[in-house]
Simulated assay, not measured.
Amino acid sequence: MRASSPSDHLNNWRAQKEQRRELGDRLDQPRELDHFFFFRRRSNAEAAAQALADADFRVSVEPGLLRTALTASRDDALTDADVARIIHELVGIAATHGGGYDGFGGAIVPMDE
């Protein structure tokens, strides 16, 4: 299982940010973001889930045959500072618990809202 670095995710964010801007996303507005993780051991996923819950994330753990998936959701804005802070926090939690962070997704907040 290859661990991803914050810089990998921040590089990916640049392209996602450009797409969001083209779609008229108000990046400074909070919206629900879903963050995705994977772990080889369910016990590691459950420990990470507790750390994420302590950081005000809503968490679901989905055991699988070869690995356990974890989704953590919370409302956050998508300014560069917010994204950098979130990515560093979540990559760190994943690494601490022997897993990987696989990125995030969330809705577009249109300019007319």
Rank of each mutant, 00 (worst) to 15 (best):
Met1Phe: 14
Arg2Trp: 07
Arg2Ser: 10
Ala3Glu: 14
Ser4Gly: 13
Ser4Pro: 00
Ser5Phe: 03
Ser7Asp: 14
Asp8Gln: 11
Asp8Cys: 04
His9Arg: 07
Asn12Tyr: 11
Arg14Thr: 11
Gln16Ile: 11
Lys17Gly: 02
Lys17Tyr: 01
Lys17Arg: 15
Lys17Leu: 06
Glu18Trp: 02
Glu18Arg: 14
Arg20Met: 11
Arg20Ser: 10
Arg21Met: 12
Leu23His: 09
Leu23Asp: 12
Gly24Trp: 03
Gly24Ser: 08
Arg26Trp: 05
Leu27Val: 09
Leu27Gln: 10
Leu27Ser: 10
Gln29Asp: 10
Gln29Arg: 13
Gln29Cys: 12
Pro30Lys: 10
Pro30Gly: 14
Arg31Ala: 15
Arg31Phe: 04
Glu32Gly: 04
Leu33Tyr: 02
Leu33Glu: 10
Leu33Ile: 14
Asp34His: 13
Asp34Ser: 15
Phe36Asp: 13
Phe36Ala: 12
Phe37Met: 10
Phe37Asn: 08
Phe38Thr: 15
Arg40Met: 09
Arg41His: 15
Arg42Gln: 15
Ser43Ala: 15
Ser43Phe: 07
Ala45Val: 03
Ala45Glu: 02
Ala45Asn: 04
Glu46Val: 10
Glu46Ser: 06
Ala49Tyr: 00
Ala49Cys: 02
Ala49Thr: 01
Ala49Trp: 00
Gln50Met: 01
Gln50Ala: 05
Gln50Pro: 00
Leu52Trp: 01
Ala53Arg: 14
Ala53Lys: 14
Ala53Gln: 13
Asp54Arg: 06
Asp54Thr: 03
Ser60Arg: 13
Ser60Asp: 12
Ser60Ala: 12
Ser60Gly: 04
Val61Asn: 05
Val61Phe: 06
Val61Gln: 04
Glu62Val: 10
Glu62Gly: 05
Pro63Trp: 11
Leu66Cys: 07
Leu70Phe: 11
Ser73Arg: 15
Ser73Ala: 15
Arg74Cys: 03
Arg74Leu: 06
Arg74Glu: 06
Asp75Asn: 10
Ala77Ile: 03
Ala77Val: 03
Ala77Gln: 05
Leu78Ile: 00
Leu78Val: 00
Ala81Glu: 10
Val83Thr: 05
Ala84Met: 01
Ala84Cys: 02
Arg85Met: 06
Arg85Asp: 12
Ile86Cys: 01
Ile86Lys: 05
Ile87Gly: 01
Leu90Gln: 13
Val91Gly: 07
Val91Glu: 07
Gly92Asn: 09
Gly92Gln: 05
Ile93Gln: 00
Ala95Gln: 13
Thr96Leu: 11
Gly98Trp: 08
Gly99Gln: 07
Tyr101Pro: 01
Asp102Ile: 10
Gly103Leu: 11
Gly103Pro: 01
Gly103Asn: 07
Phe104Asn: 03
Gly105Ile: 01
Gly106Trp: 01
Gly106His: 02
Gly106Met: 05
Ala107Gln: 08
Ala107Trp: 02
Ile108Arg: 06
Pro110Asn: 08
Pro110Leu: 09
Met111Trp: 11
Asp112Val: 02
Glu113Asn: 07
Glu113Gln: 14
Glu113Lys: 08
Glu113Val: 15
